[in-house]
């Protein structure tokens, strides 16, 4: 048990360190701006007075390390600063949008995880057969396809040619749950198609790797039935890689929503990020990037921790 606690503490501190480094990179990146942020945002034609005023408002007249800790301290209290473009509180601007993004990602995950695991395990069990080859070609193709291509094809077929689903996924907070699911169907289906291929290939590789290990062969030679080999011998060791696959793909989903949100005009954080990048609204870009990066780091950390917790070798110490 001590081993587990030590490894968990190690991973957690490493994760925190990574988060700290990420926040530093996002902050320093903006400080590296040629000239400074105020000048860049106002453009070449700005008068020195307006630039100076904006500098003062953004706190740019203070040294970088003080600005960094002020920024970080604010974020820890849920205060991301004020948007340059529309003068609103960033936290208020993005809170609802982040919830929408999470909803879409979770919905895609609920659909895609069972499909991917089933396909992956089947492909591994019947590897090199017709089923495996077909799935291999199909998933290789869908991995190589840009997300917006998949999204527009679905839109063309299921919103224009067959008017089953709305082409714009506009949601609002008062929407009933099932209405919301219905409106989000096409974006969720797009994400599912993209992510199932990844997840399925990773599951297949993990299972094949496992079935090739000597102890499985030993179990088969002892005459244990095939079903029991899978449930008693293979699965306990397979949980770690499978959970890993799921969580890594969740992380991918949270980030992969950007393009899909833009196609379906879904009011999520990705859309906000793209808008802010176009307006060069740096505080909002910083906040969105930090949230995306932090979610990504935290999910990968979760994958690490779950892998440790489900490792049979650590759970049954000698």
């Amino acid at each position: 048990m001590n081993d587990i606690a030590r490894m968990l503490a190690q991973r957690l501190s490493l994760g925190l360190l990574t988060l700290f480094a990420v926040s530093l990179i996002i902050f320093l990146g903006v400080s590296l701006l040629p000239g400074d942020a105020a000048q860049a945002m106002l453009g070449q034609s700005a008068t020195p007075e307006t630039v100076a005023a904006l500098r003062k408002r953004m706190g740019l007249d203070e040294p970088a390390y003080i600005r960094y800790f002020t920024w970080l301290g604010g974020i820890l209290r849920g205060d991301f600063g004020i948007s340059i473009a529309n003068e609103r509180e960033i936290s208020e601007l993005i809170a609802g949008r982040f919830a929408n993004t999470i909803f879409l990602a979770l919905m895609a995950a609920v659909i895609s995880v069972p499909i991917a695991l089933t396909l992956g395990i089947l492909a591994a069990l019947y590897r090199n057969g017709f089923f495996d080859r077909t799935v291999n070609v199909v998933t290789l193709s869908s991995i190589s396809t840009p997300e917006f291509f998949v999204a527009y094809i679905l839109l063309l077929v299921f919103a224009v040619n067959l008017p089953w689903f709305p082409s714009l996924s506009s949601v609002n907070p008062d929407m009933p749950f099932f209405q919301r699911v219905y409106v989000c169907m096409l974006p969720a289906a797009t994400l599912t198609l993209v992510v199932v291929a990844h997840m399925m290939r990773m599951t297949r590789a993990a299972i094949i790797n496992l079935l090739a290990s000597p102890y499985i062969e030993m179990a088969a030679l002892k005459g244990i039935p095939r079903g029991k080999i899978i449930t008693r011998h293979a699965l306990p060791n397979a949980w770690a890689p499978i959970i890993n696959v799921i969580v890594i793909n969740l992380a991918y989903l949270i980030v992969g929503v950007v393009v899909v949100e833009v196609v379906f005009v879904y009011p999520g954080l990705g859309q906000q990020l793209v808008d802010s990048v176009q307006r060069r609204d740096l505080p909002v870009v910083q906040a969105c990037c930090l949230i995306f990066a932090a979610t990504y780091v935290l999910l990968n950390l979760t994958a690490d921790i779950l892998a440790i917790l489900t490792n049979p070798r650590l759970l049954h110490p000698k």
Binding site: I25, I26, L282, V285, C288, C289, F292, A293
Partner: peptide, 20 residues
């Protein structure tokens, strides 16, 4: 490299393109 890879690539690229 570990730290750079811990930021999702598309998001990082958008941040850098805003800056430069």
């Amino acid at each position: 490299v570990d730290v750079l890879m811990s930021i999702p690539q598309l998001i990082f690229a958008m941040l850098l393109l805003t800056i430069f």
